[in-house]
Design a protein around this nucleic acid. Sequence first.
DNA 1: TTGAAAGCGCTAACAT
DNA 2: ATGTTAGCGCTTTCAA
Lengths: 358, 358
Amino acid sequence: MPARTRRAEVGVVDLARELGVSTATVSRALNGSDTVRPELAARIREHASARGYVANRLARALSSNTSRAFVGFVIPYVDTPAYSAVAAECARLLSADGTQMILTITENDPQRELAQLQDLVATRVAGVIVSPSSGVLERSRELLRDLPTVEFHRSADIGAPGVFSDDGQSLSDAVGHLAALGHRRIGYIGQSEAISNGAARLRAVRRGAQRAGLDPDAMATRLLEPDARNGPRAVRELLERADRPTALVVGGGTLSMPVAREIRAMGLRLPEDLSLIVYGDPSWFALSDPPLTTVSVRYPELAGRAARLLLARISGSTADAPGSDRVPSEPVASELVASELVASELVHGGSTGPPPGP
Amino acid sequence: MPARTRRAEVGVVDLARELGVSTATVSRALNGSDTVRPELAARIREHASARGYVANRLARALSSNTSRAFVGFVIPYVDTPAYSAVAAECARLLSADGTQMILTITENDPQRELAQLQDLVATRVAGVIVSPSSGVLERSRELLRDLPTVEFHRSADIGAPGVFSDDGQSLSDAVGHLAALGHRRIGYIGQSEAISNGAARLRAVRRGAQRAGLDPDAMATRLLEPDARNGPRAVRELLERADRPTALVVGGGTLSMPVAREIRAMGLRLPEDLSLIVYGDPSWFALSDPPLTTVSVRYPELAGRAARLLLARISGSTADAPGSDRVPSEPVASELVASELVASELVHGGSTGPPPGP
DNA sequence: TTGAAAGCGCTAACAT
DNA sequence: ATGTTAGCGCTTTCAA
């Protein structure tokens, strides 16, 4: 009564028995080893698919201690397009490679991050793509150092290659653009310097100011954790100052939307009352009237590179033989794969103009 | 020279040897079995943590053939907040349960979907949360039937419980609202009826029209695959008709943004030239001036319910003993867990008003 | 309450 | 080119 299939119950042993060969041969045939007689291999593969055989990935990964069955994708948030778009693209590319992507959200909590990294190690992931939390624990760093790692968006200084948006030029362009329009008091709302890219972006903004002949130290600045709730408060604080800025630059994707919203809520007209330059993907701000001038980040490009970089690292890594007393993973290996920078670009909308008259 | 730790190399055997007990006892202690002398159990746990022991999840899952080490999360897209927000929330909740979430993106391709489901089965996932593609294959349905499954957003009619946004009331309210303002020609841009929620939303819209005394069959309607590129074309087609609609309702999250953008690009003023009601999270449309009237979906609520529902199903399922010739999973079990509906709500922005004079 | 030993399903030496 | 045989690291009967 073969009415109901005994789903997923066939294993290599069954196939081997049914075909009168050994499990080793079955395994080899299924894994495309060239040491199997082609005709036999074909017959085995055919039979396997006929029986609806699906290899147990757990057993496979456990046995061959080095596999690329899984990779980890560790990010602080995913409800911001900056991360979700990258997650999607990576899952896609990795899936094409037969690799499953385990998604974990740290919520920017170092403890949670550590726990999740440990769990990933426990799953023997082949590698991780990570956007570290603001206060990465030393223990997390160690784990990452012993794993093929690709950083993105943020760096935790673990000597792993990464994929980052290079905002130096566009952010300093942004400030230059505002200065050229006549703005002297330019405010900056960015990410905390505890976050690697927060520091880099701040430097870029200051450089832009300097080049424009403004005093970087005189800029009104608010550096925050990239939490949506932090944006509006910063806006109010900056705009309530005595030397109220006539223009605002936002240096973070998560902060941009709330900031823009708050400015609208305050009833300010762009660019008559205030000039504004935000950060992220212009499409997020497309409904605004006028559309917002944006430091446009190439998220899909970043995602693709991160996925490919990890796959390259995984393939390249000559797994240390277990038990070998070799010095743990020479740092050299990490440095051979360089980080990749993808430049963002200042896209002009209509939210910048000359400062309001005094 | 204990300078460098031999990371993650300690296993139960090591612990057992070092403590002079058996691996069985170690395993029991670590898993909180109550058959171990409390004092011994404590000592074992302590030593384990001291040695930095982290259990190999692969071995664990392989051994105890039923584990909740992994669940699958299968969605068509993730670059739309409707999905990414849910993915984030689920990853969070599952992680708290010690479960890792494998994210796969089908891109609405049934073949890819099947392949990914097979891979998930091969990983022995404890269950899956799935938003099926438009043309689910019968083979995929079978796989899903044999797995604790929770559907969300869309249904593939596999007799599994699901979590859905109940848009019946709000969408028919939307049409009623427009009719009350005086609109007679209301256009609808929604998702293809091949998608379960596409059909449901269309019914709701028609019901709304009927109640308002309009002829549902006379409504200008465009049903599309939820691809961002499809929105603008539909807008143009509807607005270029001889009997051009004076109001538009959009019945899909992915379509709403592009539609709104296109309308802006056409230079139409809301609501003077056209009334518009979109679908999704009002915050996506907050920068629009006026803010858009929105069928507001409670995504975080949906996500939380989906995750909890799956966890409940997983815990509840008394895994059939392997080899037992029992009739495969009585459908009864599935029906015991009912689907959950979360009502969306019509949130008034300023994008609706009386139709323009003739 | 604890231990010995048999797997889980596969891959990888080592033989042949 | 194929088969034999150990494991991978854990859980889980079955005995004691």
